[in-house]
Each structure stands twice: as C-alpha cells, then as structure tokens.
Amino acid sequence: MFRETTVNTALVAILVAVPLVAQAAGEPFIITLATKVAIFAMAGVGLNIALGYGGLVSFGHAAFFGIGGYAAGILASHAQSYTPLMTWPFAIGGTQQMLIIWPVALAASGIAALVIGALSLRTSGVYFIMITLAFAQMVFYFAVSWPAYGGEDGLPIYVRDKFPGLNTLDPLQFFAVAFACFLLAVLVSVVLSRSRFGLALQGARQNVERVRAVGIDPYRLRLVAFVISGMITGLAGALYADLNRFVSPSMLSWQTSGEIMVFVILGGVGRHFGPLAGAALFILLEHELGSVSEYWQFLLGLLLLLVVLFAHGGLIGVLTRRPHRD
C-alpha cells in the first residue's frame, strides 16, 4: 500500500502535530497524552530490540521500566528532602537534574538486565518467558515491601526534574524532551539492527544452529542485546516517572510488561516505528473507548487477537502490506 518510510514519517508527523495543535487550542491534557505515547513507544523500542531482532520474548521488561522510574524517583526524593542517598563510603546526594538522573537510570536498568539476562538466557522458549516474568515479579514485590521509598503507596516527585535551558513543567517542553529521547532510541535501534551485531542477532533469531556453525556465540549476542534493550526501556521509565511526577510498584507489575509487549505486537514486531504505532493506538483506545466503557480492554484484546491472527507485521505491516523485516 504505502512504503514503510512514508508510514513512519506520517506517524512521527502526527505525534509532533498533535501536541502543537493542542497547545494552540489550549488543551494541555492532550499534550500529556502525546508525551505518554512517546514514552511508551520508547519503552517498546527497547523491548523490540530483544523481542523483534533477537526473538527474545521477555515478559519482564516492566522490571527495567520500573527500575528506571525508581532511579528518577529516589534521586529526586533525596534532592527534595535534602537528605543524602548514602553517606558511606562516600556521600552521595539526590539530584533533580535529568542529565544526571538519566545515566543513573540507564546504568541501573542495564545492570539489572545484565543479571536477569545472564540467568534467563540459559533457557529458551516458554522457560525464558516465565523466568523473565519471575524476575520482574521479584523486583515488584521488593518495591512493594521496601518501606523506605513508599512501598505499596509509591513515591511522589513533587517538582518535575529539570533539564538545562527548558522549563520541564511546561507540557510542550516536556513533550519535546520525551520526543527527542524517543527519536534517539529509534536511531539506536536502526543503527544496531543494520550493524554486524544486528545481523548476527537477527541471524540467531532465525537459525541459532547456523549462527553457531559460523563460529558466533549466540549467548553473548543475546545478552548484549538484552542489556541494551533493558536500558532503553529503563530510560523510558525515568521519563514516565517524571511525566506522572510519581513512581509506584505498578510500573513494575506484570501488567506493565504485558502492555509494553502489546505496543510492540500491535505496531509490528521487528519494525523500527512499530512501537510508536502500537503505543499511539493503545493510548487512543484507552482514551476514546475508556470514556465510553470501562471494558475497553475487551476491544483491545479483540484487536490484538486480530493482529496476531491476520496481520503479521502489526499495524505497520497492514499499512505497508508487504511482509518484511529489516
């Protein structure tokens, strides 16, 4: 029907146009929705590297999303209460600077992905799905039962974290931050998928025996992909915490893992802009149908079923009508 680049450009144009129009119309809530789309899409771009290119069906990406969120929340809460994060062996205080929070979120989710991946990737198939889920649930219950940072009640960020030169409390400016991060994530995913690493990773998804036979160790490939994937999702989590000015264990719940997976599958597994299409549709349905009926997720489920059964390649696949994975 259309070329994939045409579809992608249109999707990005819509994502940019909506908040601009909303700004002109004085509808800040719509801008927040668009920001949510950008952040969810970014979480999906992260998962897509593992799921789409690596064929690793991770049902535990909420762990990285939540860890990124808590990294932002914990640093901000210490900065706001003027208490040090730790005093021994050296003193570290909190911060509200996104440019410091982001590397911390990336590092924290990356380390978590390294540990979870190193253990989970010894299994495959259903076992991999279950083990990633189990690890995410462990992190979830840890957050629920750890009272220092709000436990079950979550942790508020009273004032949104700062970005140099911007007023992040302005919805449009915060959207710009989230949108830039999303685009950067897509760029990483594009470059990665075309590189030598990406070629081997996608080869291992299609035929792992063959990749071994040419002398490439699939375990290392997948572990690196899993870590990069977790880091991108983790950064999205940090932004999500700032969007809501609140972090809670629900970011770590298995429902969140499922939703991130829904963005990827709805949009098109292994397509660079698939998660954007998926997240946009998800938010649109939640917003439009959610105001009509609280059972909107029934329709979402139906749609997901249709996509899985009939539209290989998801929404992007339907719009481009050409089975394709690059």
């Binding site: 075309r194 590189s195 030598r196 990406g198 081997a200 490439i216 690196v224």
Partner: peptide, 8 residues
Amino acid sequence: TFRFLRPA
C-alpha cells in the same frame, strides 16, 4: 561481530 555502528 561486536561492532555496533557501521552497517554490515
């Protein structure tokens, strides 16, 4: 194999 930037 662990080269991430240049297109293969």
